Amino acid sequence: MKNILSLCLIALLIGCGSKPTSSPSADSDTASSKPRVALIMKSLANEFFSTMAKGAQQHQSEHADDYELVVNGIKDERDLSRQVALVEEMVASGVDAIVIAPADSKALVPALRRAKQAGIVVVNIDNQLDQDVLEMEEVSIPFVGPDNLAGAKKVGDYLAESLTGSSPQVAVLEGIRTSFNAQQRRKGFEAAMEEAGIPIIDSQSAEWEMSKANTIASSMLSEHPDIAAILCANDSMALGAIAAVKSAGRSGDVQIVGFDNITAIQNAIGEGKVLATADQHGDQLAVFGIEAALKEIHGEGAGNDIETPVDLVTAESLSKK
């Protein structure tokens, strides 16, 4: 009878799903020893950010023993409330670090301050947070990314050299005006045109979007038929400008430049539809931020800004690859 009771007890324990005690404790120790890094980006509908995500995931797969990665993005680059909510969700989930490409240079600062107060390492990539707001919120967050002004000026300088004829006029399609990178790219374009003595006759924000850029560029071309070039603060807007120029029957007549070096623009450069763009190495930009965050987690970082590369991309540079 005792043997039967013993067998029943064992069966009951197995039925309740008991497991060897060594496995869960070992898994728990392994998981707790690896920091969790959250990557929060802007719109994953934009190839630049999907490329950024893939680069980060590839890096994590090659360093799986070093950290875990959580990738997030918003559907619309203007959806600031959703990006703020993502920061708060990552704080609540207990991540060790947040690497963020903020959709707005000012609006995300209070949420990131709260993340830092919760003991989370925060690294800013792509679009630099507003220094005045950081000071007002009494928080320091390192920026890991390119000099957007310098990158845009390289593109603008190359365009200026290509423009011919007497007194060429150009237009600018800006990004979201509250974003620091949009402001810096506009300033880079302006500096290049001013240096070359080329007037900017129209400058409007298409908020990084291709369809809006198409509409605005079409209006610009109609209102200013002598436009010789359109400088676009990102490649998605450059694609919109290409469509507008084609609809206006001015393909080959109006030069277009962009910023980001997405695949579609590389193809357009090869086809002569776009003159140049800037490559800020989107596949590595999040990786640079993640590596900086891991150093901070391990007490090896200094909390300083880190400037990353930005290079001019032309038909000539693409042909050398």
Rank of each mutant, 00 (worst) to 15 (best):
P142N: 14
P142V: 13
P142F: 13
V144C: 05
V144H: 01
V144G: 02
P146E: 13
P146M: 13
P146H: 12
D147N: 12
N148I: 08
N148L: 08
L149W: 03
L149I: 05
L149Y: 05
L149P: 03
G151L: 00
G151P: 01
G151Y: 00
A152W: 08
A152R: 10
K153I: 07
V155W: 08
S162L: 10
L163N: 07
L163T: 06
G165L: 01
S166K: 15
S167Q: 12
P168T: 05
V170I: 09
A171Q: 04
A171P: 01
V172C: 05
V172P: 05
L173E: 06
E174K: 12
E174I: 09
E174F: 09
E174L: 10
G175S: 04
R177P: 09
R177Q: 13
T178H: 08
S179Q: 14
F180A: 13
N181W: 10
N181S: 14
N181M: 10
Q183Y: 11
Q184Y: 09
R185H: 01
R185G: 01
R186H: 14
G188F: 07
E190A: 00
E190N: 03
A191H: 08
A191P: 08
M193C: 02
E194M: 07
E194R: 05
G197I: 08
I198K: 02
I198G: 00
P199W: 11
I200Y: 01
I200M: 02
D202Y: 11
D202G: 11
S205Q: 06
A206C: 04
W208P: 00
M210C: 10
S211L: 14
K212H: 11
N214L: 15
N214T: 14
N214C: 13
T215K: 15
T215N: 14
A217E: 08
A217P: 12
S218C: 11
L221S: 00
L221D: 04
E223V: 12
H224W: 04
D226H: 07
D226V: 02
D226T: 05
A229C: 12
A229L: 12
A229F: 12
A233R: 03
A233N: 09
N234V: 02
D235Q: 06
D235F: 00
S236F: 11
S236E: 15
S236P: 11
A238I: 06
L239Y: 09
A241L: 09
A243E: 15
A244I: 04
K246D: 04
K246N: 09
A248R: 04
A248N: 09
S251I: 09
S251V: 10
G252E: 03
Q255K: 13
Q255V: 11
Q255L: 11
I256W: 02
I256T: 06
V257C: 07
